[in-house]
């Protein structure tokens, strides 16, 4: 069962963004599914988007809000060079500090999950689904 032991808006807890890459098959299906399952079962708050590329092309204002958020940001998507370029294209450049981009195109799901769910020191973990 999932219970919230602390609000997900805690300033020290990184904001999690997951990209589904729904318009192409460039991210291995089993990796993106396993990562989504892990994040969904973690009990943490998160943002999951259908396709960051599609949002960047529309210069979706929600990308600006994400980039401007004070909290640290962890993004599970693809190559960091591409993801940074997409946010720049959307007029929402990512800050140079506090952003970690995890690559589901090159890395295995457990590796991506371990990094994305890692909490900074001092933040209590939420109770996850088992």
């Amino acid at each position: 069962m999932t219970t919230a032991s602390k609000p997900s808006t805690d300033s020290a807890e990184p904001r999690i963004v997951y990209c589904r890459c729904a318009y192409a098959q460039v991210v291995p299906e089993e990796v993106k599914q396993e990562v989504l399952a892990g994040i969904a079962a973690s009990g943490r708050g998160f943002e999951a988007v259908a396709d960051l590329c599609e949002m960047a092309a529309r210069r979706d204002p929600q990308l600006k809000a994400l980039a401007a958020d004070d909290r640290p940001l962890k993004i599970a998507a693809c190559w960091p060079r591409a993801v940074e370029g997409l946010f720049r294209l959307a007029d929402a450049p990512l800050p140079t500090h506090g952003v970690e981009i995890l690559n589901m195109r090159s890395d295995a799901a457990p590796q991506v999950l371990a990094s994305i769910l890692e909490q900074p020191a001092g933040v209590t973990d939420t109770e996850a689904d088992v």
Binding site: T2, S8, A22, L36, A40, G45, F46, A48, V49, A50
Partner: peptide
């Protein structure tokens, strides 16, 4: 939860999981 998330993402939505 997982089926709902995957189904919505594959239809083009943005999904926020919130507990507050």
């Amino acid at each position: 939860r997982l089926a709902l998330l995957a189904g919505l993402l594959d239809r083009g939505y943005w999904v926020t999981r919130a507990d507050t």
